[in-house]
Design a protein around this nucleic acid. Structure first.
Lengths: 241, 241
DNA sequence: TAGATTGTTAATCGATTAACAATC
DNA sequence: TAGATTGTTAATCGATTAACAATC
C-alpha cells in the first residue's frame, strides 16, 4: 500500500463521523489563531492548545489530503480556508426556521450563521399573533404558507424548533417539498428518507448527560469520604415483575 | 472472570462516554412506551424501534446491573426509573442562567427541564434594561450580584448563554464561587478545574456538521451524474508557503 | 546541510456486534 | 416443560496513539 499520492482526493468518501465532528473545532481554533495574526502552527503546538494528540490532528487532516509541509507545519490561513471548504462554508446555504419562539428567535438573531453562509430566507409559525412581525429582518409567515414558499424558493436547510407535537408532520411537509437538510431541535427522532440530512440537537439529552456526570462525580467524592464500608447495597437479584 | 454478581454495582465507575450519551435516548423511548401504556419490551423489539442493535442495548444496560429478565424482557417502568436514577433525575438540581437573551429565555421557559428536577433559581444579565423583568417566574438580576447569590444559595448548574467575550470571565466567577457544573453554550472551550463538570453545546459546530453532510451528499450525487471523467483535479503537491 | 515536522504505517486501545449458555 | 430472552463472553470492527521514514 505505497504510493497512493495522486488519488487520495476525489474520493471524498468514507471519512469517519468522529473526524467530521472534530473539524468545526479545528476551524474555530484556526480562526482564532488567524485573528491573533499567527501565520503557521505545528501539529504539536496545536495539539497543546486544543488538548488533543498531535497524532490525531495529523491523522484527521490527512483524511482530506496533505495540508501541511514537513519541517514547516501548517499554514494557518490556508488550512482554515481548506477546512471551511470541506465543511461547505464557502457556499451559500439558504435556510428557513420553523417556530418563532425563543429558540427560533435566538437562532434567527445569531449573526455568526450568516457570516458562514447560512442565509435566513424565512421564518414560519402557527401563531397568528406573530404573523408579519420582523425578526432579524425577516417577517414571520404562517405555517400554512410553508409548502408554497418551498416551491418558489430554493431552500436547503430547515431549522425545526417546533414543539414535539407539531414537528413530525411539519418534517413531512418539508420532505415532500424537497428540503435537503433538517436541523432538528424537537425532542423526537425524525423519520425521513435517507437523502435528507438530519442533524439533531437534543438539548434535554445534553442536560441529562451533564446531570449524570455531576451525580457520578458526587458519588466518587462520597466514596472517598466513606473510605471503607462498601459492603451492603444491592441484593435484588431474582425479582419477578 | 466468573461470578462477579454481588459486586458489579457499587463501582459506578468506568462507564464509557458513548454509553452515557445513549442513556437519555433510551430514557426518552421508554417514557414514550410508558405513555403508550406498554408494560414490557424485549431488547430486540426496542432495537427495532430505536434503530440500534439489540446487542448494544443489552450491553449498555448491563453496565449498570441486570435490569431485565430472561424470557421476559425489560419492565418498561422499572427500567425508565432506573435509568432516571442513573442520570440523576431523581434529585433536584438547582440551576441559574447567565444571559437573558433569546437563548437564555428559551431555556428558562422550557418546562421539560423543571419536570426532570432542574430548578431555575435565578437569571443574570448585564443589560440594566432587563433588570427585574420576569422570565418564567424568575426576575432577572444584574450580573454583579452573581457572586453574592452563589454564596447565599446552593446552585449546582450554571447555564452559560453569554456572548463569547464575556463567557470566560463569568465562568471564572462561577468556579470561584463553588459552581458544580456549567452547561456551556458560548463558542469557546472553558478553562475550569477538573472538579467542575462542563457540558458544551456548540450550536455553530452542529450546523457545520450538517453543512458537511449536505455538501458530501451533493457531491456524491454529482459523481453519479458525471459517471466517468474522474481524472484531472488535484496536482498541488509540493507547494511552499 | 541539519533540524523540524509532516505523512503514513503499525500497534494499541476501545467500542460494537455476534453468539450462546444461563435462566426465567 | 419448552420457548423466549437475557447476561456475558468472544470475535470483529473502528478509532486513537505511537513511531519513524520521507522530505521540506
Amino acid at each position: 500500500m505505497e504510493g497512493h499520492k495522486g488519488d487520495g482526493f476525489v474520493e471524498g468518501k468514507g471519512i469517519s463521523k468522529a473526524v467530521i465532528k472534530r473539524l468545526p473545532r479545528y476551524y474555530r481554533y484556526l480562526g482564532e489563531l488567524m485573528e491573533d495574526g499567527m501565520e503557521r502552527i505545528s501539529s504539536s503546538d496545536l495539539s497543546e492548545k486544543m488538548h488533543v494528540t498531535a497524532s490525531q490532528i495529523r491523522q484527521d487532516l490527512n483524511n482530506f489530503g496533505g495540508f501541511g509541509q514537513q519541517g514547516y507545519g501548517y499554514n494557518i490561513q490556508f488550512l482554515y480556508e481548506e477546512i471551511g471548504k470541506i465543511l461547505g462554508l464557502d457556499k451559500q446555504h439558504p435556510m428557513i426556521i420553523l417556530g418563532a419562539g425563543n429558540l427560533g428567535r435566538a437562532l434567527a438573531n445569531y449573526t455568526g450563521f450568516e457570516k458562514r453562509g447560512f442565509k435566513l430566507l424565512g421564518i414560519f409559525d402557527s401563531n397568528p399573533q406573530l404573523e408579519g412581525i420582523c425578526i432579524h429582518g425577516v417577517q414571520v409567515q404562517m405555517i400554512g404558507q410553508l409548502a408554497a414558499f418551498l416551491q418558489e424558493n430554493r431552500v436547503e436547510i430547515a431549522v425545526l424548533t417546533l414543539p414535539k407535537s407539531r414537528a413530525g408532520e411539519m418534517a413531512q411537509v418539508l420532505v415532500d417539498n424537497g428540503i435537503k437538510a433538517i436541523w432538528n431541535f424537537a425532542h423526537l427522532d425524525l423519520d425521513v428518507p435517507p437523502h435528507v440530512i438530519v442533524e439533531n440537537v437534543h438539548l434535554s439529552e445534553s442536560l441529562m448527560t451533564l446531570s449524570y456526570n455531576l451525580n457520578e462525580h458526587q458519588q466518587k467524592l462520597e466514596q472517598k469520604t466513606d473510605a471503607k464500608g462498601s459492603e451492603s447495597e444491592h441484593a435484588s437479584k431474582g425479582k419477578i415483575f
